[in-house]
Amino acid sequence: MSSSSHGSAVSAGSVLSVDGVSRWFANVVAVNDVSMSIGPGITGLLGPNGAGKSTVINMLAGFLPPSTGTVTLDGAAIWKNPDVYRTIGLVPEREAAYDFLTGWQFVLANAELHGLGDAGAAARRALATVEMEYAEERKIGEYSKGMRQRVKMASALVHEPAVLLLDEPFNGMDPRQRLHLMDLLRRMGAAGRTVLFSSHILEEVEQLAQQIEVMVAGRHAASGDFREIRRLMTDRPHQYLIRSADNRALASALIADGSTAGVQMDGDAEALRVQAVEFRRFTELLPRVANEAGIRLYEVSPSDESLESVFSYLVTS
């Protein structure tokens, strides 16, 4: 380790690897045997709250050791290796960021901490990238949430890192700030940087990420580009268990529509087992049909184990 350093220029092709990683806290498994490789371009880490996304980001950022497995940057272990921060820029989720400093002082301090040759120039450039020069003389404590997010972003960009990690970067942003950040991240990705961001909102990830990694309940549920993920979530037949005020009437109303492939009365459970052909149409159909027929729905749950995770994700997001 050496305290002197220079900003790493974008060395194209930095790869983050998560290999057979589990992480537990006391008795709780937060991340369960996850393997993924994140290369240049924009990757979205998608999943509901509590899926283990932050745990993965924290391990990739070197602030948490995996309980088992390895987490590496270009082959080098990230844990206990501060040298990786020459390559990694981190935008944490938490807002706290030296409220008593002005935006300029904060970003400059970050540049100095990196030991950059011309910290002032680096700070100016980073603030210009996020278009925050207009507010750089104001204290961070006076910033709005979106402004904080941008100044945090600037602090992560001062050393022009090849890898950018962002934990829920769109949280609390208004639509305009969201578009601005998306545009910025797209440019980063196009420049050959490895950008990984987490989000629990499918639309955000879909709009931005070329590669999507889905996490549900600590597991790596799916991986692919957005078309693959969409198909996985919507196009496969789904089975649901439905309880309602009048199962028989609901069954006949549902079977009349093409998006239902089969309806079975389950006498023991006093429920319907419904096979849906297409997820999206079915989710629109069910409440409409129930409403028109005046049938109250008590319970709708997926009975298909493998897709329960995906379903629960969609209904919670």
């Binding site: 305290s3 040298d83 030296y98």
Partner: peptide, 17 residues
């Protein structure tokens, strides 16, 4: 406590420093 230590720690600085 507030997590802002992350800005010091996410730098290539020796921790003893």
């Amino acid at each position: 406590d507030d997590g802002s230590i992350v800005y010091l720690l996410s730098k290539p600085l020796p921790r003893p420093t």
